[in-house]
């Protein structure tokens, strides 16, 4: 067992949040968190990487109480790619990726050749070695997201938390990024917006609605027309794609279904 969340509760002052969330990620598993906007996907993840502090509940990573670890110790075990990618000042791509090494650094440590090797390998893993000395600010959205993934790779954790990592990217980049993440062979918990992507890449899915868990299981078990109707309010047809073995969802908008 990699990650175990038990009865996690968090409420925002203005209402909303997640109630009584329990889920597990096994070692090496790619687990997706799906649900409509505002259903609490990001909130749940933020409680993991401690941008928010849970009201109650327990989070265990490798058997350790995650919330009691120091920020540095937590960052040595868990890498996060979140939606923040704004930077006020100019850094090179290489410098951004090297930031992933900082949880492994003590106050007086300097960057070693080993760090530089890890950074280079991380850049190569996402095909960005040629951009190492470019300015981060002038990259395209897809390239920026790849840089942030490289930073998470350089962090060398075997658990990855992704908060809608491919939002606003075109389909080519989306597939590419998910492919790379799968290839890392680490345990992943990801909030995913696109149901077809979730179906393609996730081993198991948890479905959130209004802050509560309403379903869980393999994509084939979870992604049914009934569930999609009750959670998203959308009619759909789900077929098993014979080539991928995964469910493929076709949506039927109200005005066009007959």
């Amino acid at each position: 067992m990699k990650l175990r969340i038990e009865n996690l509760c968090f409420s925002y002052a203005g209402g909303g949040g997640v109630q009584d969330l329990s889920l597990q990620v096994e070692t090496g598993e790619f687990v997706g968190l799906i649900g409509p906007n505002g259903s609490g996907k990001s909130t749940a993840l933020k409680n993991l990487y401690r941008a928010l502090t849970p009201d109650s509940g327990r989070v265990e990573l490798d058997g350790e109480d995650l919330l009691r670890l120091s920020p540095r110790a937590a960052a040595q075990r868990m890498a996060v790619v979140c939606q923040e990618n704004q930077l006020p000042f100019d850094f090179t791509v290489e410098e951004i990726v090297a930031m992933g090494r900082s949880p492994h650094k003590r106050l007086l440590d300097v960057d070693t050749p080993e760090d530089r090797r890890i950074v280079r390998a991380a850049l190569e893993a996402v095909n960005l070695a040629s951009l190492a000395r470019r300015s981060f600010l002038h990259l395209s959205g897809g390239e920026k997201q790849r840089v942030l993934l490289a930073r998470a790779i350089a962090q060398q954790c075997d658990f990855l938390v992704l908060d809608e990592p491919t939002n606003h990217l075109d389909i080519g980049y989306q597939l590419q990024i998910f492919d790379w993440i799968r290839r890392l062979k680490v345990s992943v918990l990801a909030a995913v917006h696109d149901l077809n992507l979730a179906a393609l890449y996730c081993d198991r899915l948890y479905v959130l609605q209004a802050g509560r868990l309403v379903a869980s299981g393999t994509p084939g078990q979870v992604l049914t027309p009934e569930l999609i109707r009750s959670v998203y309010g959308v009619e759909s047809r789900v077929e098993l794609d014979p080539r991928t073995g995964r469910p493929a969802i076709r949506f039927l908008p109200e005005g066009m279904a007959n």
């Binding site: 040595q76 979140c82 850094f91 900082s102």
Partner: peptide
């Protein structure tokens, strides 16, 4: 200077900095 890594990480935003181990 001792905290230069932390200062760099703060620029990424509170959440990213925290996730990278900075006591924000």
């Amino acid at each position: 200077m001792l905290n230069h890594r932390g200062l760099n990480l703060l620029l990424l935003g509170d959440e990213s900095a925290g996730a990278l181990g900075v006591p924000v």
